[in-house]
């Protein structure tokens, strides 16, 4: 998907890097198990991060064959968190394809985006059936985002907040009331970060192609200080989560990985 929420590899222990890869491979393996081989393309770093936030003691590491890595076997992390992340990845992936159809040019739309969306429809229906509330939320919020884009909304903060509401809905999957509150706010901060980082990344290309970008229309907006403030919020929220298997990696992502993405 967006790939901004990643660890800062130079400061990651090898053991933590392998555990992170296991979470990523676990998502891939779960996508294949639930939705077929082609669904593996929905694997993404954002929901790998989500798995690490949710993971609890009942999970385990399994060895499975990895088609993307020759004949090697990879360690895959499996558990309830991976199952939820796989379902939500399909829902997000399908909705992104739906949006891409609006934005893409003719050849890409005809040969790539539309066929992919049609092929994913069955998987999407299955995932949306299990997670009705999340699927409805995502559709409505992305529709609202598209309307704001068409109307050339000038507030970058408002746009970021609407997008963040999509991710923060996944905070409902926490176990306790307290955990749900923390996850919702943390994912809200992460959602705002992703939106503004993506906008900043696409700024030059959007300016050339006259596409909507909130940073073009909101001239008063200081993206860097907003991103730094939001990253600090996300880190403060992370400290309120109970310590888990992936706490070291999550700390690296929040204190080093995200600031590194902001500086780039």
């Amino acid at each position: 998907m967006y790939g901004y929420i990643r660890p800062f590899k130079p400061e990651l222990k090898i053991r933590e890097w392998e555990t992170y890869q296991a979470a990523y491979c676990g998502l891939c393996a779960e996508l294949k198990r639930r939705y077929g081989f082609a669904a593996r393309f929905a694997v993404n770093y954002d929901f790998t991060f989500f798995i690490m936030l949710l993971a609890k003691g009942e999970s385990e590491f399994k060895r499975m064959r990895c088609p993307g890595n020759g004949r090697k076997k990879a360690h895959c992390f499996a558990g309830k968190a991976t199952e939820i992340a796989a379902d939500l990845s399909i829902i997000m992936g399908w909705n992104r394809l739906r949006d891409s159809i609006e934005d893409d040019g003719f050849p890409r739309k005809l040969f790539i985006t539309r066929p992919a969306k049609v092929l994913m429809k069955r998987q999407y229906r299955h995932a949306a059936n299990v997670h009705k509330k999340f699927a409805n939320n995502v559709s409505e919020l992305l529709d609202e985002l598209r309307d704001l884009e068409h109307n050339r909304e000038s507030s970058a903060v408002k746009m970021a907040q609407v997008f963040a509401n999509v991710l923060s809905a996944a905070g409902e999957y926490g176990d306790s009331n307290e955990e749900r509150r923390v996850l919702t706010h943390l994912l809200d901060a992460i959602g705002r970060l992703i939106y503004i980082l993506d906008a900043a990344d696409d700024l030059e290309a959007d300016r050339k192609k006259c596409r909507y970008n909130p940073l073009i229309y909101d001239s008063q907006f200081d993206a860097k200080s907003y991103l730094e403030k939001t990253a600090a919020e996300a880190a403060a929220d992370f400290e309120l989560l109970p310590p888990g298997e992936f706490s070291g990696i999550l700390g690296n992502i929040l204190y080093l990985g995200i600031p590194s993405a902001i500086n780039k």
Binding site: R181, V182, H185, E233, A236, E239, L240
Partner: peptide, 20 residues
């Protein structure tokens, strides 16, 4: 330093930090 109220000034989770 981590859970100081200043880090949670505009944060709705300030009550959890206070408890901590």
């Amino acid at each position: 330093r981590k859970y100081h109220p200043d880090n949670y000034r505009d944060n709705p989770l300030g009550d959890l930090a206070e408890q901590k």
